[in-house]
Every structure is written in structure tokens, then in C-alpha cells.
Nucleic acid binder design. Structure first.
Length: 127
DNA sequence: GTTGTGACATCGC
DNA sequence: CGCGATGCCACAA
């Protein structure tokens, strides 16, 4: 993907939303995953993007349309975001069949995409 | 135009 | 395992 014009700033957000929309029912993804999946915008070092990309994703989610299943996006800790209404978010996820273990989601099972993920975060003694 | 927040991830202690 | 500090962009007032 390339970024032809400055409007990419908006496109970046749209890309995030697109990816979130692609998340299948009963699956969840993390901000870090999304940040890695999306190519870093022009004029930005991948190094920095790797660190801060997740933030932009969060910023993008702050303005996510209603048709975006934002509740399927969680943080690396396997927990719902610190955003207001997180409680409701967990409820929605459980409603979709996702099981919370100790207020945490087992990304090994519900993680998306299903690709191999080296060093699953926050798994530890979960399983 | 400037200032202040923010729905994150990672490392150190 | 929890808390604090760091990195940076986008957006609203």
C-alpha cells in the first residue's frame, strides 16, 4: 500500500477500521497487532511507529464509526481497553462467545489473525 | 496557532 | 504482578 497524499492521515484511520471490520465474529485483536499489520505512514520511522503505532490506532478508534466492532480490539494484556465503557465491552465480547479467564482473553484461541504469534502476550499461566 | 489530552506498548524496579 | 516513565501523532478547545 502506498500513501499518495496527505489525506493519508484520514486513510490511516480508515485502514484501522477496515482491519477491525475484518475481525471475524468471536475473535479479538490487539492494538499492537493492528499497528504491525498496517504499514507505517510516510515520513515516519518504523522504529518509532513500532512503539507509537499502537497509540495512533487507539486515536483512530476514538473516532471509530458505529459499524466498527471496536469491542473486538483489546490491549496486549489481553484485557479490554482502559476506555470508559470497558465493562460494557467485556460484556459484548462474552456475548459473542469469547470467554474471559481472570478478566483476560486467551489470545492463543481468540487472537486474530490466526497466524503464528511468537511469544503470546499475557498468556503465562493462563493455560 | 498553541496547549492539552488520549481507547497503547514496552522496559525497569 | 503492579506502578511509573518514555515515545509520538491526531484532534478538540
Amino acid at each position: 500500500m502506498q500513501y499518495p497524499s496527505p489525506q493519508d492521515q484520514r486513510l490511516y484511520h480508515e485502514q484501522v477500521w477496515k482491519l477491525v471490520r475484518q475481525v471475524p465474529y468471536g475473535k479479538v485483536t490487539t492494538y499492537g497487532q493492528l499497528a504491525q499489520m498496517i504499514d507505517c505512514p510516510p515520513g515516519i520511522d518504523e522504529n518509532d511507529y513500532d512503539m507509537l503505532g499502537s497509540r495512533w490506532v487507539g486515536t483512530a478508534m476514538s473516532a471509530c464509526p458505529n459499524d466498527v466492532p471496536w469491542h473486538r480490539v483489546i490491549n496486549s494484556k489481553g484485557k479490554v481497553s482502559t476506555r470508559p465503557g470497558a465493562q460494557s465491552q467485556q460484556q459484548r465480547l462474552e456475548k459473542e462467545g469469547i470467554v474471559f479467564a481472570h478478566d483476560r482473553i486467551n489470545l492463543t484461541i481468540y487472537g486474530w489473525p490466526v497466524e503464528e504469534r511468537t511469544g503470546a502476550p499475557a498468556q503465562g499461566d493462563l493455560f
